[in-house]
Amino acid sequence: MAVAPTPAERFIQGILPENPVYRQLLGLCPTLAVTNGLQAALTMAGAVAFVLFCANIVTSTIRHLLKPHLRIVIFTLIIATFVTITDRFLAAYMYGMSKLLGPYIPLIIVNCIIICRCEVCASRQSVFAAGADALGQATGFALALVSIAAVRELLGSGMLFSVQVLPESWPNWVIMILPPGAFMTLGLLVGAVNWFEQRRSEQAESERG
């Protein structure tokens, strides 16, 4: 069996080489749904980071007590608890954002990035590795959301963080704010990442050969 990655490796892997959105194509529902503006995208990324970190830490702490056939129930229970806390916290302290994101915050419960990290890393490795893994994956997720949201907000409304950036004469491409814009942006960016990745591995190959 391969040696388990170290905490540092887990952290680095999550950001680009195993980016949850661009490389694993996980968590696409929020990626498509809340990336029409940077503020919403960052709030979602923060909420997912909090839930992912807490769920990984708790799962790793109790990993020796897990029974194989009951582990998924326990993962779901842990995730649902932290999602509910996040949802209530946003409703109390960021009410406008909470209304804007609406059901997408409770839907973090079914975000497969989190349960995937519990299964792949936290239920097998130390608390330290699980924490580093959560931070890496959360950073990767935030990067993905922010990159997609930046393209969509800029082209769709000429703004970044609700501040006008492009000249007023820019004809706002409304389609970028609408769902088709999300699919197109995600598709093009995934394609671009794949292209770079392929070029990089070809280069590495030729250097070795």
């Binding site: 109790i62 029974k67 009951l70 129930v73 326990i74 229970l77 842990i78």
Partner: peptide, 9 residues
Amino acid sequence: QAWLVLMLA
């Protein structure tokens, strides 16, 4: 068998 689930819940 489900003691952990129950305790966590």
